[in-house]
Simulated scan of single mutants.
Amino acid sequence: MQSKIEKIVLDTLIELNEELELKELENPTLKTRLYGGKSNLDSLALVSFIADLEERLDEEFDKQIVLADEKAMSQKTSPFRDVQSLVNYISKLLDE
């Protein structure tokens, strides 16, 4: 399941980058920064990315999850800092 989540996250980033045209997001990896210092997305792009990602996850796993909720925002380390941390967070949410 982890590899399926990784693919969904990376594909969503690639699709978003078709609009943004950021060199840093042309070939995203698990280490690609999403939010915080040296991130590749501004706040508006992050919101768009999260909305698209939630929709894709619902379609793929038939389970609605909310990524940007109080639980995510209150964590000591943001699940949105890079692709790997987001994949790990999504995996936990899908297991609940």
Results as ranks from 00 to 15, higher is better:
4 K>S: 13
7 K>Q: 08
8 I>V: 08
8 I>N: 06
8 I>S: 02
10 L>E: 00
10 L>F: 04
10 L>P: 00
11 D>V: 06
11 D>M: 03
12 T>M: 03
13 L>A: 12
13 L>P: 07
14 I>Y: 00
15 E>K: 13
16 L>W: 03
17 N>R: 02
18 E>T: 13
19 E>I: 10
22 L>S: 12
28 P>G: 03
31 K>N: 11
31 K>R: 04
32 T>W: 04
33 R>G: 09
34 L>T: 08
35 Y>M: 12
36 G>L: 04
37 G>R: 10
37 G>N: 14
37 G>W: 06
37 G>A: 13
40 N>E: 14
40 N>Q: 07
41 L>M: 02
42 D>F: 09
42 D>S: 00
43 S>N: 07
44 L>Q: 11
45 A>R: 04
45 A>I: 02
46 L>N: 03
47 V>F: 11
48 S>I: 09
49 F>Y: 08
50 I>A: 03
50 I>F: 04
51 A>M: 11
51 A>L: 15
55 E>N: 11
55 E>R: 13
56 R>I: 05
59 E>D: 15
60 E>W: 11
60 E>D: 04
60 E>V: 13
61 F>G: 03
63 K>T: 13
63 K>V: 11
63 K>E: 13
65 I>T: 09
65 I>L: 12
65 I>W: 09
66 V>M: 08
68 A>I: 09
70 E>H: 12
72 A>V: 01
74 S>C: 04
74 S>R: 14
75 Q>F: 14
76 K>Y: 10
76 K>A: 15
76 K>L: 15
76 K>W: 05
77 T>C: 08
77 T>N: 12
78 S>G: 00
78 S>L: 03
78 S>H: 05
78 S>W: 08
79 P>D: 04
80 F>Y: 00
80 F>R: 03
80 F>A: 05
82 D>M: 08
83 V>S: 09
84 Q>P: 05
84 Q>I: 08
86 L>R: 08
87 V>T: 06
87 V>S: 06
88 N>S: 14
88 N>I: 15
89 Y>H: 09
90 I>H: 06
93 L>M: 05
95 D>H: 07
96 E>F: 06
